[in-house]
């Protein structure tokens, strides 16, 4: 379980996150929802210790973030973070070189599924293919948790469909996934849990099937309730 407890974050004098608490379970897809600039990416950065926090605590299976947790949690940022001059195979070799938990079989499977050519340079890839390589580099790690920042934004519809397929496959199954989005429509049926963020706080966190069952409301209905006041 990823536990974020009372996370507080300031940029200079501006408080971006006031008091953020939520958990993300293994085997579930947790979606952080909020408008742009609400601090979704900052939360993921904080989980990976990529930005200093002013308060609160983050635990991965009860453990504080350290070099060990990087073999447990993978972060897939919204843009690829490999050097542009690298070929896909170089990027893969780089990952395999540093991570014990790199799973080459899975990487090959995804290369195949996405139809990517390992000889291609990252700089020359289309937006959609760049997103796919980015996803591959994270998902081929045998980690328990995966954080994804806006995996569906800014890519063509076919790439989007392929990425959606990944979400319903064994590549995701049994892992804990945290994804951020500002557009929920495409993935409403994919997620288990929604965390609605606004004003640096968690306004509401709920299991989406439960809300449909008990209140007959969609995620968008809940968002309307929270954001249109």
């Amino acid at each position: 379980m990823i536990e974020v407890k009372h996370l507080r974050k300031k940029f200079g004098r501006k408080t971006v996150l006031q008091d953020i608490s939520f958990t993300a379970e293994k085997g579930e897809i947790t979606c952080l929802i909020g408008i742009n600039g609400v601090g979704k990416t900052t939360i993921l950065n904080a989980i990976m210790a990529l930005t200093p926090i002013q308060g609160g605590q983050i635990l991965i299976d009860g453990e504080r973030v350290s070099k060990r947790t990087f073999e447990k949690v993978a972060f897939i940022p919204d843009a690829i973070t490999m050097l542009p001059q690298m070929r896909i195979k170089d990027a893969i070799a780089f990952m395999a070189d540093y991570y014990h938990c790199w799973n080459q079989k899975r990487a090959d499977e995804m290369l195949n599924f996405f139809g990517l050519k390992v000889e291609e340079r990252i700089a020359n890839l289309s937006k959609g293919n760049t997103a796919k390589v980015n996803l591959l580099l994270g998902l081929a790690l045998d980690v328990d948790y995966i954080l994804m920042d806006e995996p569906f934004s800014g890519i063509d519809i076919f790439s989007r469909e392929q990425i959606t397929d990944v979400f319903t496959s064994h590549l995701i199954e049994d892992r804990g996934v945290v994804i951020t989005t500002h557009e929920i429509q495409d993935i409403e049926h994919l997620i288990d849990k929604a965390v609605l963020l606004d004003d640096g706080e968690v306004k509401m966190a709920f299991n989406v099937e439960e809300i449909r069952e008990t209140e007959g409301k969609s995620v968008v209905d809940m968002m309307r309730q929270v954001y249109q006041r």
Binding site: G27, E28, I29, T164, D165, F167, T168, S169, H170, I172, E173, H189, L190, I191, D192, E209
Partner: peptide, 17 residues
């Protein structure tokens, strides 16, 4: 359940349920 989740593009947990 995995095939079903893939075919319908739904969460595998939902297919399971």
């Amino acid at each position: 359940r995995r095939e079903l989740a893939g075919n319908l593009r739904i969460n595998p947990n939902t297919a399971q349920r």
